[in-house]
């Protein structure tokens, strides 16, 4: 189990983990629960420039399709080939093997606009009615 307090969270339910200037991105357990079984992913290609809070891919369940938002601004440097082939890994291990892509931060970009665990948990609580 990943250390959830080490992660930063977007209000669109992506988590981010900073290591040097590379950010690993996945979606949270809450998002997985809302989606139910993930059936298909469309991830950005390596080399693509992405902008914080803008769509960069799609995630699908049987009856719904959602945008994946880039949590930070930068360039895609790696995509998880295993989850593209078997998206159920995201259901099984969203914070571990279910990571989706890595972004190399653009110059001047950072994670300051993202939430910490506590703030994210508050957001979920308010969404959950």
């Amino acid at each position: 189990m990943a250390d959830l307090s080490a992660l930063r969270y977007a209000k669109t339910h992506e988590w981010s983990l900073l290591d040097g200037d590379v950010v690993t991105v996945g979606i949270t357990q809450y998002a997985v629960d809302q989606l139910t079984d993930v059936t298909h992913l469309q991830l950005p290609k390596v080399g693509k420039s992405v902008t914080a809070a803008e769509p960069c891919g799609e995630i699908e369940s049987v009856k719904a399709v959602f945008d994946l938002y880039a949590p930070v601004t930068g360039t895609i440097v790696e995509v998880n080939p295993t989850v593209e082939k078997d998206p159920s890994i995201i259901n099984a291990d969203p914070y571990g093997k279910g990571w989706m892509f890595k972004i190399c931060l653009a110059e001047g970009a950072n994670l300051d606009h993202l939430m910490n665990l506590e703030a994210y948990q508050q957001q979920i609580a308010s969404e959950g009615h």
Binding site: T39, H40, E60, S61, V62, K63, A64, V65
Partner: peptide, 9 residues
């Protein structure tokens, strides 16, 4: 593959 269809997209 209904997520391709316009009533969902």
């Amino acid at each position: 593959l209904q997520t391709r269809e316009q009533h969902i997209r």
